[in-house]
């Protein structure tokens, strides 16, 4: 089973290599850097145990296994990137003795989820310039402030605050012990998704590293979505808001009436 999955991934990967450069970077979604030309002896394949994180009513986080194989010497870095959105960070200041929000900075296309898994600290594997170019590692994320807010002098403290807030919820993480390379060929990584994981389409990028250089990249999508009752309610609230609001009122009114009937009899 797993062998055939690996074979399928390998075929898909070879097909990807055959695409022209531009098309390939589009197919890989968010990678802006031109993918390096893969040498013949640097095959890399990877897949996930599941391609869907299902948020149901009893959801309290999920773990997905990433597995793969490399051919030739090398290390592996796994980066999971969630959907991006504008995020406003606000700073409180003391005004008349009360702490209230004053300055704010909006970051464009900030990832809502970002996790790095590797076997060693990132700087042992790649030079900082390369980490920055590929946006590997939380300190190397390219968080761009929107318009006017860019004028703010201490943008770095806002950036740090965004990272801190995301890390607190477990949405930004970096772990250098959750990836195991076995027999210099197979590797596996445990990807953890906390209960607050945002919905959307994720990209899991796997970087093969040799001699402080990225020599190969592969990526696979992952969907985080609400299912069952949870999905129905969320969908209704977002897309049919008036019906949802009316339903909320009717449910409450019926509950109140029932309570009064029960109370009278008791």
């Amino acid at each position: 089973m797993r062998a055939s999955a690996l074979a399928t991934a390998l075929v898909a990967f070879v097909a990807l290599l055959a695409l022209p450069d531009q098309a390939r970077s589009q197919a890989k979604g968010e990678i802006q850097v031109k993918a390096p030309a893969a040498a013949d002896d640097s095959r890399l394949i990877a897949d996930l145990s599941r391609h869907m994180v299902k948020i149901s009513t009893d959801f309290a986080g999920d773990d997905i296994l990433l597995f793969g194989a490399i051919e030739g010497d090398g290390d592996v870095i796994v980066v999971v990137r969630g959907p991006k959105k504008h995020e406003t960070v606000r700073r409180k200041d003391r005004v008349a003795g009360i702490w209230m929000n004053s300055d704010e900075v909006t970051f464009q296309h900030a990832p809502t989820f970002y996790a790095v898994v590797s076997a060693k600290p990132l700087t042992d594997l790649l030079p900082v310039e390369t980490l920055k170019a590929y946006e590997i590692g939380i300190p190397h994320l390219n968080l761009v402030p929107l318009g006017d807010s860019a004028a703010n002098a201490d943008i770095i403290s806002f950036r740090d605050a965004l990272i801190r807030a995301r890390s607190r919820e477990g949405l930004f993480s970096e772990r250098h012990d959750a990836l195991k390379i076995m027999g210099r060929a197979l590797f596996r990584a445990d990807l953890h998704f906390p209960s607050a994981v945002p919905v959307g389409t994720y990209q899991v990028h796997v970087y093969m590293v040799q001699n402080r250089e990225v020599i190969n990249i592969t990526s696979t999508p992952l969907t985080v979505g609400k299912v069952g009752v949870e999905a129905g309610i969320y969908d209704l609230a977002q897309r049919h808001a008036p019906a949802y609001g009316a339903m909320a009122i009717v449910i409450a009114a019926i509950a109140g009436w029932l309570a009064s009937v029960v109370f009278r009899k008791a």
Binding site: E87, T88, V89, R90, R91, K92, R94, G97, I98, W99, N101, S157, F158, A161, L162, R164, A165
Partner: peptide, 13 residues
């Protein structure tokens, strides 16, 4: 409202 907050910065409004 009066004591200094644990983190001066916040997201989610």
């Amino acid at each position: 409202l009066v004591i200094p907050p644990a983190d001066l910065y916040s997201i989610h409004g």
